[in-house]
Write a protein that binds this DNA or RNA. Structure first.
Lengths: 137, 137
DNA sequence: CTGAATCCTTCAGGATACTG
DNA sequence: CAGTATCCTGAAGGATTCAG
C-alpha cells in the first residue's frame, strides 16, 4: 500500500475546500432520506426501513452509523425485550434540515424538466452527424 | 448479465422517492463545487480547473457533461482559436444555488464539531469494554 | 427487533498520455 | 485551450446469512 498513489490526493481529501467536506458526509445514497425521515421526531430502526423504500438493512445500518459518528444522529437504546432503538437528529443536524428540504423541494419541482433535458441530450448524442435534414430522403 | 439481480432494484432506482433523485445528480464529488463556482457568471474550463482545487481534468469534464446533460449547465463554444468554452448555470440551477450555499455554509459552521464528534466516536469504539475504571490498576 | 458478517459487483474517480 | 482515451484502485452498495 501507499505506492506513491495517495500523496497529494490524501492531503487534498483531508484538507480540501469545505465543499467536498459537506458532501462527503451527506453523500451517501440514503443519508438525506434518513435525515429527513428523522426530522419529525425519534424514529425506530424498522420505521426507517419501511419509510425509506428501497434501502437494504445493511445500508440502513451503515448509514445510521456514519451519521451517528459525524454527530448528526443520536442513537438511544431502550433496554427492553424486544430491543427498541431510536434515532433522533442532533441540533446540528436540525440546522441542516432547511437546506435539505430545499434540495428535495427543488428536485420535485424540476423533476420532469431534468428528465426532459436528459432525454434531449441523449437523443442529440445519438445523432453525431445529422444536423442537416435538407439533403436526404 | 441481468441474472435476476437488478429487477426490483432497477425499478427502485429509476422510480424511487425524489430524495434519491436529487442526490443522484448532485452526488458527484465535484458537482456542487462546480455549480457554486459557475454561479457568478459564465466560467471557462481552465478557470474551473484552477478554481476547484484538486479536481482532475477528467473529472472536470465528466462532471460538466453530467451537469449539462441534466440541464443544469449550458455549454457555449466560441469557435475561435484557441477554443473558448464557457459554462453557465441554467435558471433551474440558479434556484438550487441557495440550498447549495446553505449546505456549504452549514459545513463551515460545524466543521470542527463534526470532527470532534468523529474523534469521540472513534475513541469510544476503541474501548469496547472499559466503561468502569473503578475496578482496575 | 436490531443489527453484524460475508461475498460480490458496479462505478466513481485518480494517474497518465494523446489530440484538434 | 479544451478536451478524449485507457488503465487501475478503492469504496459504495446489494444479496444473503447468522446472532443477541
Amino acid at each position: 500500500m501507499s505506492r506513491s498513489h495517495t500523496r497529494v490526493t490524501d492531503a487534498v481529501r483531508e484538507e480540501a475546500c469545505p465543499v467536498t467536506e459537506v458532501l462527503d458526509r451527506v453523500a451517501g445514497k440514503w443519508s438525506v432520506g434518513i435525515l429527513i425521515a428523522a426530522a419529525h421526531g425519534p424514529v425506530r430502526f424498522t420505521e426507517l426501513e419501511r419509510a425509506i423504500n428501497g434501502i437494504s438493512r445493511r445500508m440502513l445500518t451503515l448509514t445510521l452509523r456514519r451519521l451517528e459518528r459525524d454527530g448528526l444522529l443520536v442513537r438511544t437504546v431502550h433496554p427492553t425485550v424486544p430491543p427498541k432503538v431510536e434515532y433522533s437528529l442532533t441540533p446540528m443536524a436540525r440546522e441542516l434540515h432547511a437546506s435539505l428540504t430545499g434540495l428535495v423541494d427543488w428536485a420535485e419541482r424540476h423533476r420532469s424538466a431534468i428528465a426532459a433535458a436528459r432525454a434531449a441530450y441523449d437523443t442529440a448524442a445519438e445523432r453525431p452527424t445529422a444536423p442537416d435534414p435538407t439533403s436526404a430522403r
